[in-house]
Design a protein around this nucleic acid. Sequence first.
DNA 1: CCCAACTATGCAACAAATTGCATAATGAGT
DNA 2: ACTCATTATGCAATTTGTTGCATAGTTGGG
Lengths: 181, 181
Amino acid sequence: MSLAHAIMTAVLDDELTGYELAKRFDTSLGFFWQASHQQIYRELKALSQKNYLTSRAISQQKRPDKTVYRLTPEGHEYLRAWVHESTKPRLAKDELFIKLYNLSEENVADLMEEVRERREHVQRNLSLYYRIRNKNYPNFSSLSTRMQGVALVLDAGIRDAESIIEWCDCTLERLCQVKGQ
Amino acid sequence: MSLAHAIMTAVLDDELTGYELAKRFDTSLGFFWQASHQQIYRELKALSQKNYLTSRAISQQKRPDKTVYRLTPEGHEYLRAWVHESTKPRLAKDELFIKLYNLSEENVADLMEEVRERREHVQRNLSLYYRIRNKNYPNFSSLSTRMQGVALVLDAGIRDAESIIEWCDCTLERLCQVKGQ
DNA sequence: CCCAACTATGCAACAAATTGCATAATGAGT
DNA sequence: ACTCATTATGCAATTTGTTGCATAGTTGGG
């Protein structure tokens, strides 16, 4: 259900296409929500039928035609009311940790490589978050209330990424000792 | 698919019932995987049919009868091979951050309460992780390789929880200022 | 010039997860 | 005495998410 809320929140300020939404769920929004383009297009259609979103077709010459979506007043009110409802605990699933539970001399090299890849991936996200913060949220106090909320989420993403990178470095050192018997 | 791997990993050392597994997915394992008891019982049945787990019925007088599951050699081999396969990126979904994107003077009090609850929840988990570490993994170097892997995951859980608590404290201060205009 | 990646959308089949319900005994607290 | 939480398992319906496929022009690199 909350994919709907995430999408509606994403189009609070911007008019966006399904394609652009998919990219955001893969980058900035990806810190706290993920969705495939198939899911997004399905949900956009459902939300339009419920009258929470309106769509507008845009013809393009050099690119395929596209449809941009924006929040309706009904959608805005629905979202406003939803914020007051009880919040589900965060959901996290990470295969890497299941695999680490199975650590052995036989697989330690593979797992080190996985941790290295995880570090790189998180480092890329962190760089992106820094860029977004420097560009759009340089001074917290000067932001509008809504943008302060966004900045707080960005801060969570940055802290999360930094802490994971530290763990990766520490873990790689320890796995290196396991590898060398 | 990976619920299967998580369950098989959980019964690597211990014989467990579906009920006990459900409790673990709600506490220690919950850091990196969650599953309802309905999901778990279904998966246990499927894994038994595939011959990756064997079950043993235990009659009880004061409590309902129960069934304990353990890993078969086939299950062990399957798990061993799976560790070498490519790992999917972590999946995280958190409604709290969607709600923070919608921060306003109207909802700031509710959101502060949500952040406080999140802090308490994470603090409870952190205390549990500390207890587990002090009890079972006090000295990293003296552990078996497999247990070192478990200790590394525990370390990730501790770092994660500590960093979230810091964010909650910082966020509560900032939200307090928003509340007071 | 060819191949890959990007832009842009969507259907259909399938797998995974959630929600609601059901049973049934024991122990702990008010 | 009554109520609530705990132990212990499971079915059925629905919702959500994944995987595979399909189309089709543009842009960039080697």
